[in-house]
Simulated assay, not measured.
Amino acid sequence: MSKKEKGAMENMKKLLDWIKRPSISKRLIFSFILVLTVPILVLAASSYYTASSTLHDEIMRSAKDNVDELNDIINQNVGSKETDVAYFSEWINQNAYKGKGLTPDRFKRKV
């Protein structure tokens, strides 16, 4: 082993020995860490859950609004085409075909 590896191993042994020796200061340090860490973790988890559900709801609402707006645009365009078709279907009638010398039988076949 190299000197660095030996030094790292010695430091790990010192740390483990320090942890294994019970003392009031170590217990206080670990209890403070535990008391501080648990509430922070609980708050972080609840914040994450709240943000996640709020973001999901907002995305779904936005998607629904976009679909509704697109539906309105399509309905307006199709509605205007429907009005145009109704106008031109009234304009082109059997009399227009008769004026061009077509018989009613030929008119029925074309329609």
Rank of each mutant, 00 (worst) to 15 (best):
Y87I: 10
T54Y: 09
S46T: 15
K14I: 05
D17K: 01
S46N: 13
K4T: 15
V111S: 12
P22M: 01
S80K: 10
K13M: 13
I40W: 05
K100R: 14
Y49C: 02
S62M: 07
L16S: 11
I19K: 02
D72C: 05
A63Y: 07
F32G: 06
L41P: 05
D84Q: 09
V85S: 04
A44S: 07
M60K: 12
F88W: 13
T103W: 00
E58W: 06
Y87A: 09
I29G: 06
K14H: 04
T37W: 03
D105M: 04
S46L: 15
L41G: 08
L55M: 12
G7M: 13
L41T: 08
H56R: 08
N66P: 06
E82C: 03
P104H: 03
D68H: 04
K98G: 13
T83V: 09
G101W: 02
P104R: 00
V35D: 07
E82T: 06
A63I: 14
A86C: 00
I92N: 00
N77G: 07
L16C: 08
S46Q: 14
K100W: 11
I73Y: 07
V42C: 02
N66T: 13
A45D: 08
D65H: 06
M9P: 05
Y49K: 10
G99I: 01
P39H: 01
S2V: 02
F32N: 08
V42T: 02
T83W: 04
K3P: 12
F32Q: 12
G79S: 00
K26N: 04
S80W: 10
R109E: 15
L16H: 05
P104I: 04
S89P: 04
M12Q: 14
P39Q: 01
L34R: 03
N95M: 03
I74T: 04
G99C: 00
K110P: 08
N93Y: 00
P22K: 03
V35I: 07
R61C: 09
S46P: 09
K13T: 15
S47C: 09
S46C: 05
G101T: 00
G99M: 03
S52D: 10
T54D: 13
